[in-house]
Amino acid sequence: MVLLGNDEFLMELSKLFQKARSSGSVTMTMKRYDGRTKPEPRDGTPVVKNPEFKCLVRAQSRSKKISTVIEQRDVEKFTTAYSNLLKTSVNGLKRLKKPKKKAMAAQ
């Protein structure tokens, strides 16, 4: 898994969307991240005191995996850029056909 900066992640994500447009899919996951890279010791002493929570974002398409960590101060900037990327990249979705409802027979 490749850890990228926020802007690099968005550029690579747009490339993943372009590759997956014809066939394939892109899987995205987001979760809270406190900056720890090692598990807490069993005696209960915290490794990181007063952590500033971050957001870990991962994307996967076929065998390519990318990820980024978003700081609290950059969340708004990242989400606006991410939403703009989604608006431009997800425009080719197929419409779902709604099943026709049968008319109720007069009783």
Rank of each mutant, 00 (worst) to 15 (best):
V26L: 00
N91E: 13
K77E: 13
S89G: 12
R95H: 09
D34T: 08
F78V: 01
C55D: 00
S67Q: 14
L56G: 00
G92W: 01
D43N: 15
L56V: 00
L85P: 09
V48Q: 10
E76Y: 06
S89F: 03
R42P: 07
T88Q: 10
G44T: 02
V47A: 05
Y82T: 00
Y82V: 00
E71M: 13
Y33W: 14
P46L: 07
M30L: 11
P51T: 00
N84V: 06
S63Q: 10
T29A: 13
G92S: 09
R73M: 01
R62N: 15
Q72T: 04
D43L: 11
Q72M: 03
V47D: 04
R42H: 02
R36N: 08
M30S: 09
K64M: 11
V57D: 02
E52M: 03
V75D: 01
T27H: 12
T29V: 08
L86N: 11
Y82W: 10
V48H: 07
E40H: 10
K38C: 03
D34V: 03
A81E: 14
A59T: 03
S83V: 07
L85E: 08
T27S: 14
L93Q: 13
P51Y: 04
R42W: 01
T37I: 15
K65H: 12
Q60C: 12
T29M: 11
T27M: 10
G92K: 01
F53Q: 03
V48Y: 09
D43R: 08
R95C: 04
N91K: 15
L93A: 14
D34M: 09
Y82N: 01
Y33D: 15
S61K: 02
R58Q: 15
T88A: 09
P41Q: 07
E52N: 06
Q72C: 01
T68K: 01
K31G: 11
R32S: 12
G44F: 02
R58S: 15
L93M: 14
E71Y: 11
A81T: 05
E71W: 08
M30T: 06
K54F: 04
V47F: 04
T45Y: 05
E40C: 08
K87G: 06
K87C: 05
K87Q: 13
S61P: 00
V69Q: 05
T37V: 15
R73D: 06
G44C: 05
N50V: 04
V69K: 09
V26K: 00
T29E: 11
L85V: 07
F53D: 08
R73T: 07
Q60S: 14
D34K: 10
V26F: 01
V69R: 08
D74T: 02
D74N: 12
E76M: 06
Y33L: 02
V69A: 03
V48K: 15
K94S: 14
T79M: 15
G44E: 05
R95Y: 09
N84K: 13
T80N: 13
K65N: 12
